[in-house]
Design a protein around this nucleic acid. Structure first.
Lengths: 82, 82
DNA sequence: CAAAATTTGTACGTATGTATG
DNA sequence: CCATACATACGTACAAATTTT
């Protein structure tokens, strides 16, 4: 996935869309951790600030939850086997 | 109003609380504009990023709305005389 | 138990883009 | 065209929580 820096859609929204799709299609299943900010930074070639904005969108949508010191997790509507 | 940088409450939350109070007590009435980010920067002595986080909280609460090029406005539940 | 590594949270500063007046 | 104001992006630094060594 590559970011289009010419078009009207800001990078942070493109990144959010990419992650949203991975969640929707099950690439990253409920309860699972999303790549860390450092990893996302490497993958998308965007600044931490930009990635945090993308993650914030998903948090606002209730798709993910962040836990300091642990990571970013896909929310599971139904409880998973822990 | 002064920010306490020693306590556990981060500055952006203190600033949000200060603005929230001004809205609640009518100091800044519905429909009216809040001081610009530049003005808030001078008043609170905080960075732009910190102020934006404070405003974001109020936006999430539905207390204010931002309009690019115009400012940050207190939301009016009932329509005002425009 | 202690130290280091990992990861998110917060803060600061700067630059550029976009919209409004 | 210019000034004002918010939006986005980049980079850096340190704090706090968790996990690993």
């Amino acid at each position: 996935m590559t970011i289009d820096r010419e078009g009207p859609v800001p990078p942070y929204r493109q990144i959010a869309a990419a992650l949203r799709e991975r969640i929707a299609d099950g690439t990253i299943p409920p309860g699972r951790r999303i790549p860390s900010l450092v990893e996302l930074e490497a993958e998308f070639g965007a600044a931490r600030d930009t990635l945090r904005k993308a993650v914030q969108l998903l948090k606002d949508e209730g798709l993910v939850e962040t836990v300091q010191g642990m990571g970013i997790f896909v929310v599971s509507d139904r409880p998973q086997n822990d």
